[in-house]
Structures are given as C-alpha cells and as structure tokens.
Amino acid sequence: MQFRYLGKSGFKVSEITYGNWLTHASQVENDQAIACVKASLEAGITTFDTADVYANTGAETVLGEALKGERRQSVEIFTKVFGPTGPKGHNDVGLSRKHVMESIDGSLTRLQTDYVDLYQAHRFDYFTPLEETMQAFADLVRMGKVLYVGVSEWTADQLREGAKLAKELGFQLISNQPQYNAIWRVIEPEVVPTSKELGISQIVWSPIAQGVLTGKYKPGRPHPEGSRATDDKGGANMISRWMRDDVLTSVQGLEPIAKELDLSLAQLAIAWVLQNENVASAIIGASRPEQVHENVKASGVNIPLELMERIDEVLGGVIERDPKRTQDSSPKQREA
C-alpha cells in the first residue's frame, strides 16, 4: 500500500480508502461488512470513509464496531455532515452551526472515537452563510473533535471562498471528495486546477463508476444476478445513467489495455484515477472481502502515457467533462 499527503498538510492517507456508502447497514449484512473492514486492514488500508447520512447513521455505527480494538493512531477515520438524519426535522439537515455541532457528537458516539481525522461538508449549503459553517468547523478543530476539514462536491469558486475563510479563521481546507473516474471527468477543467493552487487534494468516490468500469455489464445482455444494477434498495438507480449500450461497449474495449498491464478492469479503473497527481486517495467499497484484496492491487501501479492515451481513445464520446455537473450535485432546496 502506498500513502500520499492530503492537501498542503503533513497528514498522510492510504491511496486506497475503504468507504461504506450504499453497503454497510444497508445492502450488506453487518457481519459481512465487518469482514470487509478487516480485509481492508489486512490489505494495508488505513483510511476509512463514511457519513452520518449513510443508512441514516447506521453505516457509522457498523464502522465503529468494525474498528473497535484497533490502535486509534494507526487508522484515519473520515465522516461527513450535511444530509438529513434522524427524524429529518427542520434543523436535521445542512451546514448550520446547530446541525454541524450536533452532528459531530452523534458521529463520534457511533464511531466510538474522541475525534475524527477528517470532517467533511458533504455538499455545499446554499441556505447557510458560509461564514457560519466555517466558524463551526474552526471551533471543532480547536475543541479537538476534528483534526482536519474537507468538503465534498464543491465547485472551484466554492473551494476558493471556503479556503479563504478557513485561512482567516486559522485552519485550512485540505480535501475535496468528488465523483471521478475514467468516464466522469467533470473536475478536470476547473476543480483540479483550483485545488492545486489552494493546496487541496481530491479523495475520489466511484472510481469504478458504480461497477460499470469492471466490465461485468455487457451490452444487450441481462445484468449479473446480485449486482448493483439489480439492487432495488438504491443501487440500480445510482448506476442507471451509465447502463447505456454505448458506454458498456466502450468499457469492453478497455480489456486489451488491462491485460497488457496484467490488471483486471476494476484495478485498471482505480489505477487510472490515481495517475492524477491531485488525487490523494480513491475510495473503494465492497460487499465481499475478496473484492477488497483484488482492488488494493491498483495501489502503486504506473500506467504509461501511451496507454493513458489509448484509454482516452477507447472511451471517446462517452466521457462526461462538463464542469457544471459539479454544481448540480448540491441541492438548491431544503430536503427537510
């Protein structure tokens, strides 16, 4: 396992992060979820990402149980705040001081820890003054409940304003968590250049495009039984936008490149995002321990430039690059 610095800080994370969105306390039984966390530790992963909104706080609870007994200083625990939790009342959502302060205490209890290494604004809040949110984060850092602060799916302009306020308040934004993979590159035109300028790293989610980049979905053929595309608990909806024949056909064209590198298509997809120097870590999920052991083999892989160019040629017209898609990810109206 390789390690990378997160942003312009002295904080290192494993370049593969284990994440439990859509799995723990939801699609995967708790015993299996805990086995996946144990497999991650065995494989050298030290960084774990979750959020209070995942399974309405259930995912944090499972992760806390799975990491119980581990040396706290040897792992990095990330969580997030924004989405509606609990009974989803009028103050149970967003980045108000009230919601941030109350949410961190709940997260710490569920994760069975005194602090989180990275606390992330899960989305941008258009209804709360940014000054209020950043002051709350600054206070949590001074209280010792949060060591570092990051965000998720913020635009370049939002990152710039957030970083400015953080500096004025005596801390720094060190990370952004966007969706990023070989067919979803919307952060490349604006977010990545701005992040490099500000000293912010990317911790990317969905490096295998919800499983599409594994090649297991074939154009014109039924979806594999038990796959995310057949999951009626939310997985099928998340993956539906990529279940087009042109996308699936293009992905099959990556097979010769993967074989040339002696990688599976999933390993190729994860290794691809790690070629971007602004990416500190790629988040993987798993429903079985063996998936973890296979995917960590992407760590440390170098893809030659000529093969990176061939990947671009194969995927061609199915690549999404519009930077405006980042702004679409933050709700413009209250969910509660």
Rank of each mutant, 00 (worst) to 15 (best):
D157S: 14
V204K: 00
M143W: 12
R221M: 15
P193G: 03
I200T: 02
I239P: 09
E153D: 12
E132Q: 07
R244G: 14
K167E: 15
L198A: 08
Q179V: 12
A236C: 10
V146A: 05
K233H: 15
L140V: 07
M243T: 11
L165K: 09
A138N: 08
G150Q: 03
G220H: 07
V151K: 06
E168D: 13
I174R: 11
A163F: 03
R228V: 11
Q179G: 10
K196Q: 15
D139A: 14
G144D: 13
T230F: 04
F137C: 03
G170I: 09
F137A: 06
E131V: 07
M134V: 08
V149P: 00
G162Y: 07
A229P: 06
S201F: 13
K216E: 09
D232N: 14
L159N: 10
G215N: 09
A182H: 01
Y148A: 05
P193V: 05
Q158R: 10
P207N: 06
I203F: 00
M238I: 15
P219Y: 04
L198M: 09
D157K: 14
M134F: 08
R160V: 06
K218Q: 08
V192Y: 06
E197P: 00
A182S: 12
L165Y: 10
F171M: 04
E132H: 05
Q179I: 10
I174K: 12
D157T: 13
L213M: 05
W205K: 03
W154Q: 03
M134E: 00
Y217N: 04
R244D: 13
G162H: 06
G235W: 10
G226V: 07
R185L: 06
R160E: 15
N237P: 01
